[in-house]
């Protein structure tokens, strides 16, 4: 199963959240759009963990958050659990272009510092 097939499998219902997969030099990238809320957290978590477990030898998973407008604590929890899965495999998770309101939920929970963050917007 490739990245896109995995996305279709884990997020069949694209009402609240969607994702697009791509490969970067140091590993896969998932670009997420929409709301990571109570409902969509679980599918996102399952998708991330699947990607981490099926990218042997890659050192980094990039999650592009530019189009994520809302995240709940459950959403932050989903990313945290994915990070735990990644650390078990000595893989990093890089959060790219986090919107301020989303970043502040991570910060309030004191979990932002565990992730790598990156700004590619000008």
């Amino acid at each position: 199963m490739d990245l896109q097939a995995a996305i279709n499998r884990f997020i069949p219902d694209r009402r609240t959240v969607t994702a697009i997969g791509a490969m970067e030099p140091d590993g896969p990238r998932l670009s997420i759009a929409g709301s990571i809320d109570l409902e969509s957290s679980k599918p996102i978590q399952d998708l991330l963990v699947w990607v981490i477990e099926n990218q042997e030898g890659r050192s980094c998973l990039t999650v592009d958050m530019e189009r994520v407008e809302y995240i709940s604590s459950t959403g932050v929890g989903a990313l945290t659990l994915a990070l735990m899965a990644a650390r078990k495999r000595d893989m990093r998770i890089k959060l790219r272009n986090i919107q301020p309101q989303v970043g502040s939920v991570f910060r309030l929970l004191g979990l932002l510092s565990y992730f790598e963050t990156e700004e590619t917007r000008g």
Partner: peptide
């Protein structure tokens, strides 16, 4: 509830980190 979850997540993350360090 969030406060408790936060503590749990942090603890697990630190554990994963420590585990990795130990393995290395």
């Amino acid at each position: 509830r969030i406060e408790n979850e936060k503590k749990l997540w942090k603890m697990n993350l630190e554990l994963a980190e420590a585990n990795l360090k130990l393995q290395k």
